[in-house]
């Protein structure tokens, strides 16, 4: 065996080994790497990023005060005169003579907050409910199974109620306010998250590595927290992204129905859409701006969520 040959072989094997290393890393890191190459993910991320930037910087970049009725005298409601887009007011004026463009920009923050807070409420509460049910059903013995059955039947009942109706009842209980919208939309999402996490956890609970953990003598609580849960979160996180989109739309719907924020001082896309309906025939643009804003944002979150779903899907995980 000559040295040259051994060196060459070593080099070749090293080459394949390093090529392998370049693709290594934890599953999360791999999914992120995969997402960076997906056009869908990039589109979604750009839209969401834009939205977040506007929401954060809104009050600072808005050209005018969104609440000031500066051009009130130029608007004639009974004659349907709403000065349209012009150099001074890019999106025109609303029915009180306020600058639509500024209102849209400032309104983004409230819209985002509604979406995020509502989703967080649904995610956290749903995850707790679903997680407890799954953990009880898997390791709680006979009693645990009963606990799980009770929880999940309650979840089923909640799921059977149309989401908007559920949100409406919550909103009716709490009275119209922004907080109401967030809680109402969030509560309506709880059963979805609960079911999803429970299903995902039960699937993981039957996997070989959980059996391996049991056979190693890993305590039950630790199995749930360190084995089952991390492997079950993927689909739930994806769902959260998708729910963010629907939450924004639902919040808009609640606002539209008059359960949103009654405070005219802080613009919000859903409320703006509700306000615009009175002038729909004369000034459709007033409805179109917030509607398009909501749709584009929802689209951004949906694209991002779908891309995440694809990159986390265990069936596709092996391709790289």
């Amino acid at each position: 065996m000559t040295i040259a040959k051994i060196e060459k072989l070593d080099r070749l094997i090293e080459a394949t080994a390093t090529a392998r290393d370049a693709r290594g890393g934890s599953l999360w890191r791999q999914s992120i790497r995969r997402m960076r190459r997906s056009p869908m993910a990039i589109c979604g991320a750009v839209l969401v990023g834009l939205f977040v930037v506007v929401a954060v910087l809104g009050p600072f970049i808005a050209p005018h005060d969104p609440t000031a009725q500066t051009w009130g005298r130029e608007v004639f409601l009974n004659r349907n005169v709403f000065p349209g887009p012009r150099a001074e007011n890019w999106f025109g004026l609303d029915h009180l003579g306020r600058d639509m463009f500024s209102r849209m920009i400032v309104g983004a923050r409230q819209t985002l907050m509604v979406g995020v807070v509502a989703t967080l409420i649904g995610f956290v509460a749903g995850a707790v409910v679903g997680g407890v049910a799954a953990a009880a059903g898997t390791f709680g013995g006979r009693w645990g199974e009963r606990v799980e059955a009770v929880i999940m039947r309650a979840v089923d009942v909640a799921l059977a109620i149309p989401m908007l109706l559920l949100a409406l009842s919550v909103a009716a209980l709490l009275g119209p306010s922004l907080r109401t919208v967030m809680i109402a939309v969030g509560v309506a999402q709880i059963p979805i998250f609960a079911r999803l996490l429970r299903g995902s956890m039960l699937a993981q609970a039957h996997s070989d590595y959980v059996l391996a953990a049991i056979s190693l003598g890993v305590p039950k609580g630790r199995i749930v927290v360190s084995h089952i849960l991390p492997n079950s979160l993927g689909p739930v996180i994806v769902q959260a992204t998708l729910v963010l989109a629907t939450a924004i739309i639902e919040a808009a719907a609640l606002s539209y129905l008059g359960l949103g924020n009654p405070d005219p001082g802080s613009p919000e896309w859903g409320t703006m859409l509700a306000d615009a309906q009175r002038f729909l025939s004369g000034a459709p643009q007033l409805a179109i701006y917030p509607a398009v804003g909501i749709i584009v944002t929802a689209l951004g979150f949906t694209l991002l969520g779908e891309a995440m779903r694809e990159s986390l899907d265990p069936r596709l995980r092996r391709q790289e």
């Binding site: 394949t16 596709l316 995980r317 092996r318 790289e320």
Partner: peptide, 10 residues
């Protein structure tokens, strides 16, 4: 899809 020969075969 699955990995190709020269890659870690998943």
């Amino acid at each position: 899809a699955r990995a190709v020969t020269v890659e870690p075969a998943g």
